[in-house]
Design a protein around this nucleic acid. Structure first.
Length: 308
DNA sequence: AAGACGAAAGTGGTTGA
DNA sequence: TCAACAACTTTCGTCTT
């Protein structure tokens, strides 16, 4: 009995990702959340002032970084504490509370705006919830360390998202982030580097294989072609053809070759557009792949097959 | 005619003195 | 801080299918 392979109902991709913590199954190709056990009936979470917080905030809320203070706030004292204090102490108390209020409202305001923007960009790119959560966490940390100062809020948001994508092995290119957020590519790259360095986030160099699934589905290539492309990538990595080169270029070249081998030819132009690189780059990588992995025979084989 | 190929010049980013 | 450098892009002419 053949086991049923789960497919994404949206794009029928097979590259599904099970996020155990959140109980979600996510399609890595199109970002669709396929199974989400926690049906979300929650009310609108935004609070506009502390009185609304009283009515809108629910006790026992899950701690989340998409909420500006992770759903948990700290305040300097309550009025009832005042009875315990003397005059000088009392003044100090008010001063502290005033400052606390000022600082927290400034950060709060920033976070509310930023997280709204973050959600917008995230949903535009159809990113899974787990990535959005991670990005929110990164952004929150960045704000707390004052890393946003001197930079536009949007660019830090984009940088945080970019970092979160890489950490969750669902990389998006800088171009995609740029399109979604309206921030220049180099600006995103800069804030991304800055933020990750300052926060000491370790980011693995992105793996070309992570791009394959998404590019392949955009080009409507078969699953066999996909796995062949990944196979090629692995070989290429072993002989260190991949180091130092842009991961998208390598991924697209591998995909291009693999499509040729399986007789599902796509033009260099098509692959280049999807991957966000130029034909020239594909050609260069493609040439290297052919030379180093002697794949010519595989391609010739499929050509002969076609003639018959 | 379209796609593939390759050369040449330009760009943005990294590295090492 | 500056220059050398590698990767990648843009542009354009030529070859192949």
């Amino acid at each position: 009995m053949a086991e049923m392979v789960k497919k994404c109902p949206e794009c029928s991709g097979i590259n599904l990702f099970w996020n155990r913590e959140k109980g979600e199954i996510i399609c890595r190709d199109c970002g669709l959340v396929i199974e989400d056990k926690m049906v979300d009936f929650t009310q609108e979470w935004r609070e506009f002032d502390s009185s609304q917080a009283e009515t809108k905030r629910r006790t026992g809320a899950p701690m989340t970084f998409t909420q500006y203070d992770q759903g948990l706030g700290t305040e300097v004292g309550q009025k009832s504490d005042l009875f315990k204090l003397g005059g000088a102490e009392r003044n100090k108390f008010f001063r502290l509370r005033k400052w606390q209020y000022r600082i927290s409202t400034a950060i709060e305001r920033n976070l509310k705006l930023a997280l709204a923007e973050l959600k917008r960009v995230s949903s535009f790119l159809k990113l899974p919830k787990s990535v959005e959560e991670e990005a929110s966490r990164i952004y929150t940390l960045a704000v707390q360390r004052g890393l946003v100062r001197g930079r536009s809020m949007e660019s830090v948001v984009a940088g945080a998202l970019y970092a979160a994508c890489r950490r969750h092995e669902v990389p998006r290119t800088l171009d995609e982030l740029s399109e979604a957020s309206g921030i220049e590519k180099k600006e995103i790259g800069r804030t991304y580097r800055f933020v990750t360095r300052e926060l000491g986030l370790t980011i693995l160099p992105s793996n070309p294989a992570d791009y394959i699934a998404r590019f392949a589905s955009a080009l409507k290539l078969s699953a066999e072609t996909q796995s062949k492309a990944i196979e090629i990538l692995e070989k290429a990595q072993k002989i260190e053809l991949t180091s130092g080169r842009g991961p998208t270029g390598i991924a697209s070249a591998a995909l291009y070759v693999s499509a040729l081998i399986h007789g599902e030819k796509r033009t260099q132009r098509e692959v280049a557009d999807v991957a966000g690189v130029t034909e020239v780059t594909i050609r260069n990588r493609y040439k290297e792949l052919l030379e180093e992995l002697n794949l010519e025979k595989d391609i010739k084989k499929t050509k002969k097959k076609k003639k018959r």
